[in-house]
Design a binder for these strands. Structure first.
Lengths: 369, 369
DNA sequence: CTGTTAGCGCATTCAG
DNA sequence: CTGAATGCGCTAACAG
């Protein structure tokens, strides 16, 4: 069926075009396309089929102007090249797309000034909300943003008064340290991240908690602060003085991989001479040499949770500022020395072992699919 | 100075508010804020200062509806976790932000169906243009998208009739292979990527060109096709039969790193037993063990160029469908065995060596900053 | 140099 | 069950 509509040039088809063809009013079209039951079934179907036929795509911009909602949220991260983020991004994206939302990324590149500039652009911008997946600015800056009335959820950090989703990394580090102690290691070092950051403080607590509990000799336990990067780990190991620890836990996997590099250079064998445990379970962790024992954060799930919280916020369903804690999980591979590599398949990445968010169930009403 | 404006609640300040306060018409405000010289300097400044004072942020949505431009472009990539993309993304982003454009990412995750779905969402959507930084769909699909009248630029691939920006990877592979031959290697293997892809065909040509030129014994030269991943490289090496080549060139750095893993496992020493050259110069290449010799693509610059081409397109300045070829550069490190590591500083990432787009100057009117 | 007016595409009262 | 009218915030053509 061909309608007498001028689709000749670049002019987009609107609900008015459809209205004209269907001999109804634009509002009827608008309602029908949303399947509003107030419109008779016949008209509704008729209109929908016409829309289909014309390949009608509603203008998000028109809609945005009318509703005051752009259906776009902003996701602030530090750096797309950081392997920590992809899974978080996918979690956010998948949830967003389910509700026909888009996500726009903002890479601060670890630059506080840049982040501050971005936040300024975001406030009262065209975004319905913001997820700060990694933020280095002060709490004040964040609260400022929020007071400018843009809904916001933060991740990997707790900001009072703002909904947050974090992994309980104190517990994560406790688990890792405890495991090492159980395996008989006594001389332990924790290569922590930058001192002031929320996660660093939590992880340090977890580390110390485990060592205190086991009543380890304080002289055999050390904590240092380093950049949370490959190079940070490399340097930290090279700069060790005195006796080599029996085991090292690092703030994140990138550092652990840096430590591995340094050990290769120094002729230190992992895990024979040194046990090593990381944090995050980035994908490289499973094909490093040896495969890295680490503490997994349920990143994909975290992304989903954050997006859901933002949706709740947007729909006014929940204006709470609760913090959601997700549980980490110790992933034992070979670098901690308590698993023998008999099958000899290290180096290949066991897909099954990194199902996003597997086994975590803490956020009320959430399920892992 | 305090104006009698009700800023009590969530209602955003508009040009009408400013107009009222300044006792001018909205259009005067609109013009003044764009610094339109038709408006008297005094009024302009007065209005600008009022806007400033009120913290006025123009609504992109209103503007979009009025102008038919959303100031958002879509960037289609396969996977944020692929280290190939970050620099491209930054190039696009930086250029976009300069002109107050936002970029929205679309991760196809190497899934052709997903990509097709995305392209459908993009057509006539709320985007001013699309950059396909990595596309796996057919040319037809792409041309379809474009015919739906959304400006489009493709990268890393040449599509007839569409502006493209690609690295001359035939030349890249020629340079790599030629270098190995010059260094005396004669038994060469090329671990290529998937056979059908544009880049694979080009790179294979470059490899063969160099081997023909040097009149290498055909029996000592081999090409295989593999997934362009860490695992693809790992597997390719494990599956080698017969005599180990003296040197291997891989389709990309990820594969090369996979090869390194396999070699460690097999007790093959690089570069003593085997020379290795990658492609791309991802950041890991400089801190692998040993540091990887590779062919650098000017990715940051490519991103900038693509964004600029899209802008040209949008402003109607150039509707050409030219293909821009950028020149690759051979980056010699240690894995090819022609540089001795005397300083012993491998493992650290030499920042200076990866300045984005350094030294490339091929796109007319472009400069590297 | 500045104001008036009329949309851009859609959602949403309020009527009927 | 449906239509008319209005407005979201801004731009731009047309008048002065």
């Amino acid at each position: 069926m061909v309608h007498s509509l001028d689709r000749s040039k670049n002019t987009r088809t609107t609900i008015y075009d459809i209205a004209r063809i269907a001999s109804v009013s634009p509002s009827t079209v608008s309602r029908s396309l949303k399947n509003d039951t107030r419109i008779g079934l016949k008209t509704r179907e008729k209109i929908q089929s016409i829309a289909e036929e014309l390949g009608f795509r509603p203008s998000r911009v028109g809609k945005a102007l009318a509703t005051g909602r752009s259906q776009v949220i902003a996701l602030v991260i530090t750096d797309v090249s950081n392997p920590f983020f992809p899974e978080i991004i996918y979690g956010v994206e998948d949830k967003a797309l389910e509700k026909d939302y888009y996500v726009s990324f903002w890479n601060t590149r670890e630059d506080v000034e840049r982040e501050r500039r971005y936040l300024k652009m975001l406030e009262k911008g065209s975004f319905d909300g913001v997820i700060l997946a990694a933020s280095r600015v002060s709490q004040r800056d964040i609260l400022n943003l929020v007071n400018r009335s843009i809904p916001c959820v933060v991740m990997n950090r707790v900001v009072k008064g703002i909904p947050s989703v974090v992994t309980d990394s104190q517990r994560g580090l406790y688990l890792a340290t405890r495991h090492l102690i159980d395996e008989g290691y006594r001389r332990l070092a924790f290569f922590n991240g930058p001192g002031r950051a929320y996660a660093s403080r939590q992880r340090k607590k977890g580390f110390l908690q485990a060592t205190y509990e086991a009543e380890l000799d304080e002289n055999k336990v050390s904590v240092s602060h380093n950049p949370p990067t490959h190079e940070g780990g490399f340097r930290a190991l090279m700069q060790l003085k005195g006796v080599l620890p029996e085991a090292i836990v690092t703030y994140d996997d990138l550092m652990a991989i840096g430590v591995m590099g340094a050990c290769r250079k120094m002729g230190i064998k992992i895990p024979q001479d040194l046990a090593l445990v990381g944090f995050d379970d980035i994908s490289q962790a499973s094909y490093s040499d040896p495969p890295l024992t680490t503490v997994r954060q349920p990143r994909y799930f975290m992304g989903q949770v954050a997006m859901n919280m933002l949706f709740d916020f947007l729909s006014g369903r929940r204006l709470s500022s609760e913090t959601v804690f997700l549980q980490p999980e110790l992933v034992i591979r070979e670098s901690c020395g308590c698993v023998k590599n008999e099958k000899g398949d290290e180096g290949l990445c066991p897909e099954g072992s990194r199902r996003p968010g597997a086994g975590i169930r803490l956020y009320p009403g959430q399920r892992n699919s």
